[in-house]
Design a protein around this nucleic acid. Structure first.
Length: 125
RNA sequence: AAAGCAGACCUAUCUUAUCGCUUUUAAAAAAUUAUUUUAUUUUACAUUGUAUGAAAGAUAAGUUUUAAAAGAGGAAAGUCCGGACACCAUAGAGUAGCACAGCGGAUAACAUCCGUCCAAUGUAAAUUGAGGACCAGUGCAACAGAAAGCAAGUACAGUUCGGCUGUAGUGAAACCAGGUAAACUCUGUGCGGUGCAAUGUCAUGUACAUUAGAGUUUGAGGGUAACUCGCCCGAUUCUAAGGGGUAGGCAGAUCGAUUCUAAGAGUAAUUUUAGAACUAGAUAAAUGAUAAGACUCUACUAAGAGAACAGAAUCCGGCUUAUUGGUCUGCUUUUUUU
């Protein structure tokens, strides 16, 4: 697992995103929420969103999205130890004020850890 | 020097280091898919000359790695005008409707821009302007007045004795004209509609709902964002082509009414010629993060912040709105000095 976050690791399929909102499971650590589903094929794709409701200006949304993306990129290798996964997920920012980078990185780290633990528990059951 | 007017340009800073994103180009790597063999080789089969299959080769595409280059704005915004481009007879013709409006010019075009006249404001630089036509018709007009039309008429004078002419009185205007077109209207010019989620194409691939052409029959009924004409749609047979969906890939898509420089034409907007340059191309949507230093500001030790409005989405020309700090140019007025 390297530091990169290219096109392949982004969630692009309309279908999968549709499914994500319909049947996805969500985990919350304020100010983030992670929705995920397990897929049939080995796949690890992510996407990030900031609701228009809380941030009206495109500049602000862009900025927050980039921060989250960067945080995810750096935390990814700590969280995902093995290489084969089969899930897609979306991280949404729920706060009303723009976060700083260090805050975001910490929270995203926690969020991913929690996500991995839950997955493992499920598999053991 | 102060105050003001007009215009142009820059601006989420710069340097280094470490990670990271998108596109393009080049090189390398394996294995994959497709095409090709009329002009490559080998082999199988059948035959003595060609067809078919397989493998290698070649070409193309994508994948990974490395390197290099480039990567948000003056408004990218509002979607308010004007175009390019694409499709559609719901597209044609006439009427209606809408927009614009001194005069002249620029332009692909415009409600934009330039020049100029007039009017208003200002000491001035300058700014603003719904500035075509009431000798085509219809309407409207406070107060005053007999009367601002469809009905009348006061006083005096003249008289060719006809309510024919003049004067007085009211008023901005009085017997046939004037004012008003941010009144109807008229004149001139322009305007079909829908928008890149347009549209074309490739792959997968199921079913007959689709499309095109030709023949036969019938023209009832229906469709068409104002109306009339027009136009289109039907049933059946034959032939040919492939549709829908997966909001899949590619094209459209960034080289263009382009940018810069020089010279010429023009008061100017603009334009001609020559030379040079490619300057974002994403698609759940790239242009970022961290650290150190510089610089600026608040503070004046420390410490903090990196500014306002704001993020390309088919592309251009404008307009409008939002707005931080700064640089430069031209001009006006007042005061001082010579």
């Amino acid at each position: 697992m390297n530091n990169t976050l290219g096109k392949k690791e982004r969630l692009k399929s309309q279908k999968l995103i549709g499914r994500l909102f319909e049947e996805g499971t969500s985990i919350k650590i304020f100010p983030f929420r992670l929705i995920y589903i397990v897929t049939e094929k080995p796949l690890l794709q992510s996407s990030f969103s900031v609701p228009k409701r809380n941030f009206k200006k495109a500049v602000d949304r862009n900025r927050i999205k980039r921060l989250i993306k960067e945080a995810y990129r750096l935390e990814k290798k700590n969280a995902f130890k093995t290489t084969s996964y089969n899930c897609v997920f979306m991280i949404t920012f729920l706060g009303k004020k723009a976060p700083t980078f260090s805050e975001a990185q910490k929270k995203i780290g926690e969020l991913l850890k929690l996500f991995i633990e839950r997955q493992k528990r499920k598999e053991n059951e």
